[in-house]
Computed example of a mutant assay.
Amino acid sequence: MRVDLFDFDLPSERIALRPASPRDAARMMVVAGSQIDDRGVRDLPALLRKGDCLVFNDTRVIPAQLEGRRGEAKVGVTLHKRLGPRDWQVFVRNAKRVRPGDLIDFAAGVQARAGERDTDGGMTLAFLGEEPVELLLERAGQMPLPPYIASKRPTDARDQDDYQTMFAREAGAVAAPTAALHFTPSLMDALAGAGIAHETLTLHVGAGTFLPVKADDTSDHRMHAEWGRIDAATADRLNAVRAHGGRLIAVGTTSLRLLESATDEQGTIRPFADETRIFITPGYRFRAVDGLMTNFHLPRSTLFMLVSALMGMETMQAAYAHAIAQGYRFYSYGDASLLLPAR
């Protein structure tokens, strides 16, 4: 499909630079079939059914943004995917100034050696020394805010908490599963009181989620790989929800993509521990999920393609036009949408 079919005009003032406070005070646009309703995140218990299950991503964002130098040249590094105890696949700003074998000096005495360039447009980086890389990142790294926020303000201490969900447990993501940022303990109590269950899985979100689609046609776009896991017990419980008539509502596109990656043609969710490059565009047949709670996405992005696949292109173009007209806040720190297809 032509990528320009997924374009729309978004005024820059619609981009949220801070989250709602408290988190569950955010607005939420509900799209059920083709009907659009303006609600709030706190309305979620009344919008779902007893027996439904929300599925969260429990990945934890690491301080994956690093600023350093190769000689006199400034170099910016964003970790993308772990390759080993000390080795990472990374994206590099000013990459032309870095050659394989070069030493890069970061803050607090942290050093890394540049490796070979890769087919995904980045390169490998090996951190020096014997300290665990996690400790090095705590010293030298920053929270990797999305470019559309980082270009408008610097990262600060508030982001250490704001850009981490209440479910964050498994360290390894370089971007937050932002739909879950809206949840609070009180909202989870209200959902449990309404008979709505929840489960967690793990998908370590990579920096590729921020990359624009440069191809003119979706068939020419290559997704970056991300590692995910669903254990056998969780898969069994998720299958039981659907067997008893409940719906699986993915919280975030990361949860949805992992669920769909782990589900067979008969609709059974299998244990999964592997990389996924799943790319969902209109025409895709959903096997695992019955709905999605997600934030508002960029024009021409793979995530807007995904929600268009779930709800229909015309429906989502109309929904986003409504969201813009009604002043919804977009992207990682923005408002939410609850998408419930008619089927």
Rank of each mutant, 00 (worst) to 15 (best):
P185K: 06
K81L: 02
A46N: 15
R39T: 11
D87H: 10
T202V: 08
H221T: 02
L310G: 06
I15G: 04
I278S: 06
G129E: 11
L292C: 02
Q142P: 00
H182K: 15
V30A: 06
D162K: 14
L339V: 05
A194K: 11
M293Y: 09
A126P: 09
G76I: 07
G267R: 13
L79S: 03
A190L: 14
R287I: 02
P45R: 07
M305D: 00
V289Y: 04
V98L: 02
A309I: 13
Y333N: 05
F296A: 01
R153H: 07
N295M: 10
M305H: 07
A323K: 12
Q160I: 10
A321W: 08
G40Q: 15
G115V: 01
G195Q: 08
S186K: 15
L137A: 06
G172R: 00
A233M: 06
T294H: 11
M1V: 11
P177T: 10
R97H: 07
M28E: 00
G252I: 02
T155H: 09
D220N: 14
R270Y: 10
V307E: 07
A325Y: 05
A319W: 15
N57L: 12
V92G: 00
F286H: 02
L181V: 08
L48K: 07
R169A: 01
E116C: 01
G228A: 04
V31E: 01
D105C: 03
R237A: 10
P132Y: 03
R39Q: 14
T254K: 04
T202A: 08
L187Q: 03
S34F: 06
H221I: 00
R86W: 01
H244M: 12
Y284D: 03
G109W: 02
L303N: 03
T119L: 08
D52V: 15
E116T: 08
T276N: 06
N94F: 03
P85H: 05
I36K: 04
D7E: 10
D264P: 15
Y148Q: 04
R300Y: 09
D335H: 05
H80E: 11
R113V: 00
D290N: 15
R247D: 11
R49W: 02
L187V: 10
M293L: 13
S21V: 12
T234S: 04
E130D: 14
E138S: 13
F6R: 10
A262L: 11
R70T: 00
S21N: 14
T294M: 09
G267Q: 08
T184W: 02
L54F: 04
F6G: 09
A25W: 08
